[in-house]
Simulated assay, not measured.
Amino acid sequence: MREATTSPAARRSGRARGSAYPSWFYLPAAIVYGVLFLFPTIASLFFSLTRWTLFEAEFIGLANFEQFFREPFLVKGLVNTLIYGVLTSGLKVVLGFLLGVLLTSQIIARGYLRSVLFFPVLVSTVGVGITFTVMMHPTTGVINETLALFGIKGPGWLTDPSLALISVALVDVWKGVGLATVIYIAGIVSIPQEYYEAARIDGANSWDSFWNITLPLAKPATVTVIILSLIGGLRSFDLIWAMTKGGPGFTSDVVASVIYKQYQAGFYGLSTAGNVVLFILVAAIIVPLSGFLNRQGDEP
Score class of each variant (00 low, 15 high):
Lys219His: 05
Val255Thr: 08
Phe292His: 08
Phe46Tyr: 14
Leu99Val: 04
Asp298His: 11
Pro220Glu: 05
Gly232Asn: 14
Ala204Thr: 04
Gly127Ile: 03
Glu197Ile: 01
Tyr84Asp: 09
Asp172Met: 11
Tyr33Leu: 14
Ser252Met: 01
Tyr184His: 08
Ser206Trp: 09
Leu170Met: 14
Phe25Leu: 06
Ala57Tyr: 07
Arg200Gly: 04
Trp207Tyr: 09
Phe279Asp: 08
Ser229Ala: 14
Leu289Thr: 12
Leu289His: 04
Tyr112Gly: 14
Leu27Gln: 07
Thr251Asp: 15
Glu3Met: 06
Leu163Gln: 05
Val86Gln: 01
Phe69Ile: 06
Val35Cys: 12
Pro40Cys: 01
Pro220Gly: 08
Phe132Trp: 10
Phe279Ala: 13
Thr81Gln: 11
Thr272Val: 14
Asn64Trp: 05
Glu299Arg: 15
Gln193Cys: 04
Ala16Arg: 11
Leu234Arg: 09
Pro192Trp: 02
Ile227Trp: 05
Pro22Met: 03
Phe97Cys: 08
Ile185Lys: 01
Leu99Tyr: 02
Asn275Trp: 08
Ala265Cys: 04
Gly154Arg: 02
Leu149Gln: 09
Asn205Asp: 15
Gln106Lys: 15
Asn275Arg: 09
Thr214Cys: 10
Val126Ile: 09
Gly18Ala: 12
Ile42Pro: 02
Arg11Trp: 07
Ser105Val: 07
Ile185His: 02
Pro161Glu: 09
Asn275Asp: 11
Leu78Cys: 10
Phe65Ala: 08
Leu98Gln: 10
Ser19Trp: 07
Asn64Glu: 12
Val134Glu: 07
Gly100Phe: 00
Ala20Gly: 11
Val86Asn: 06
Leu122Ala: 06
Glu66Trp: 11
Ala164Thr: 06
Ser236Trp: 02
Gly18Lys: 14
Thr125Asn: 05
Met243Ile: 03
Asp298Ala: 14
Thr159Pro: 13
Thr244Ala: 00
Ile201Ala: 05
Phe150Cys: 13
Gly269Ile: 02
Ile280Lys: 03
Asp238Pro: 04
Trp211Thr: 15
Leu293Phe: 00
Gly297Leu: 03
Ala57Phe: 07
Asn144Val: 11
Phe119Met: 13
Ala169Cys: 02
Ser13Ala: 11
Arg11Ala: 08
Ala57Gly: 07
Ala4Leu: 06
Thr222Lys: 03
Gly111Lys: 06
Leu278Ala: 01
Val254His: 00
Gly154Gln: 13
Ser190Leu: 00
Pro40Met: 00
Ala29Met: 10
Gly34Trp: 09
Val93Lys: 12
Gly151Met: 00
Glu71Asn: 13
Glu3Asn: 14
Lys261Ser: 14
Ser23Met: 15
Lys76Gln: 14
Asp238Ile: 00
Phe59Leu: 15
Leu99Met: 02
Asp253Gly: 04
Trp241Lys: 01
Phe37Asp: 07
Ser115Ala: 11
Lys175Thr: 00
